[in-house]
Write a protein that binds this DNA or RNA. Sequence first.
DNA 1: GCCATCTTGTGATCCAGGTCACATTCGAGG
DNA 2: CCTCGAATGTGACCTGGATCACAAGATGGC
Lengths: 238, 238
Amino acid sequence: MSTPYGIQITEDCLLCKLRQSGYFCNLPPASLQELDKVKYASAYPQGAVLFVEGQAPRGVYMICGGRVKLSTTSRDGKTLILRIAQAGEVLGLHATVSGKPYELTAEALQPCQLDFIRRDDFLRFLQNHADACLNAAQHLSKNCQSAYEMIRSLGLSHSVAEKLARLLLEWSSDGDATKEGIRIKVSLTHEEIAQLIGTSRETVTRVLGEFRQKKLAQLRGSTLVILDKPGLERMIDT
Amino acid sequence: MSTPYGIQITEDCLLCKLRQSGYFCNLPPASLQELDKVKYASAYPQGAVLFVEGQAPRGVYMICGGRVKLSTTSRDGKTLILRIAQAGEVLGLHATVSGKPYELTAEALQPCQLDFIRRDDFLRFLQNHADACLNAAQHLSKNCQSAYEMIRSLGLSHSVAEKLARLLLEWSSDGDATKEGIRIKVSLTHEEIAQLIGTSRETVTRVLGEFRQKKLAQLRGSTLVILDKPGLERMIDT
DNA sequence: GCCATCTTGTGATCCAGGTCACATTCGAGG
DNA sequence: CCTCGAATGTGACCTGGATCACAAGATGGC
């Protein structure tokens, strides 16, 4: 079997092992079978742009594997990253449901497998499968939540250090605890981190240096180690 | 009939005249009748707090009349207003759907009529009424959209003037065009406007003064007049 | 009509962090 | 192993807007 971009494509959702709670595709077999009929599975290379903000919604993309960057850009080129979406998430959901243009730009951070579902197929699917519709509502609600989280970070923080601390703590939940601290794989540049918290690259570099000095956290290559979680937490409840 | 807080309560959704497209309660009669069975209509005075961020979700509130302020507060007391919700909107939707605590605090800006629906009743209702579920998804998607709008304002603006211009332009869509400009009723203090764009009250006062000077917009009492919409638009595409 | 309270207006001060300008280091490809 | 572009580290400078501190209106409760 050919494996474009070095990833395996799983064609049949029913046989797919990835499915787990919280995944959109975690549906009863009957609904899943329906979904299988209307989806198009394919692989995308790193850097692939799935949709661009302002485009009319063509449909949704379910992430089967890989990570996708969701961002928005101002006319003068400043970019803000809203979220890094992972397997199990559905992209373009709000645009597809509301019929309004995509609000964000989606770009693959690494080779990805994505299942595409055309808008009319997807809406029909939701209408006929209350369970899937509720799943969709849950995913939308998760998106809201993460957006609110970001608003809190952008609007209520007193300093960049605080915003960065919030971000690291958010990440810390999906890291592995080791003897020296919580170890997390982040494949993001300082530039991208800056875009996640709405600041400049230089400031991220400086604040990360500060955190290293204070033995709060350490970013080496693409591994982040949280050395002093309570210390970071203390930065956000000033 | 008693009219607490000076507003009429409409008890029967089927007879209610308010219903219009975009309202959650704009449902086929069969579903509406079901909804009617599980809702509790009541009136709230100005300042009433419907729920507080962090509380476990009791259920949703449909706004039949009046306006409700949705906000979040940091530990040190700084408040950010996320949205002013109007008739037809559903409050507490994401918390109720996801089962997570309310993310925001909801407070009546004026006497309101609200219909409350208990969480389990509401979820059952969504499960059995695909049309309502799709409506719910649409409302969640609208919430997302307005959250993304706010993120863009907070994260991509270069100045408070730009943020304020964005806000005024957002408002301008539901104002009346007059010969002198677009007239909008905003019953918000400078303080509240500041909380909507994440800045300080003094700065709002100053920037509004600046806008008045430049004949861009004018806030007198609770009426805002947009004098030069293109001028405001020019502020945000620098 | 009058006070108490909430809002708005304005000046003065100060500093976090944006921006520019480089130096340095890293890492992938030949 | 070398080279080149991308990523990181760091200094210097400057400014928007937060903050404090009042003055002056506006409002409404009695």
